[in-house]
């Protein structure tokens, strides 16, 4: 079997692979990823759901909370243990997690995600001009 235009194809493949692997090359030799240290609430030990659940599902929970409060007019959340919370990012979540920069941003920055919650919602540490 003969490979037509073999030289061009192989050069192309090498260039492609090179570009494809740049992230690996870029991070080679750097320290392994470690989870960021979060500033956890001082006075409160338990979140609306378990720590594991929140770590994994807080985005879905917030998504549901938004629709429940705003669209369905149901503003009280009964958690899996039967405890009640007001459905509100500013009035519930951020009453305990009193600092966005020390909590939300830590993981979001590491994961390169920038949810635009704070374009409208007011972070507890206040807004700067």
């Amino acid at each position: 079997m003969k490979l037509y235009n073999g030289g061009k194809i192989i050069t192309g493949l090498v260039i492609f692979l090179g570009l494809f692997l740049t992230p690996l090359a870029y991070n080679a030799g750097k320290a392994a990823y470690s989870q960021p240290k979060l500033k956890l609430p001082v006075n409160e030990k338990e979140c609306v759901e378990s720590k594991e659940y929140m770590r994994k599902n807080h985005m879905q929970l917030l998504d549901q909370w938004r629709d429940w409060a705003l669209r369905d007019g149901k503003r009280v959340y009964v958690n899996s243990k039967g405890k009640e919370f007001e459905i509100s990012l500013q009035k519930t979540c951020m009453k305990c997690h009193t600092n966005k920069a020390e909590f939300c941003d830590k993981c979001h920055n590491d994961a390169s995600v920038s949810p635009y919650c704070w374009d409208c919602h007011i972070q507890p540490e206040g807004l700067k001009k």
Partner: peptide
């Protein structure tokens, strides 16, 4: 199923 929203 346990968790969910209710009206205040």
């Amino acid at each position: 199923a346990e968790a969910g929203p209710v009206r205040a």
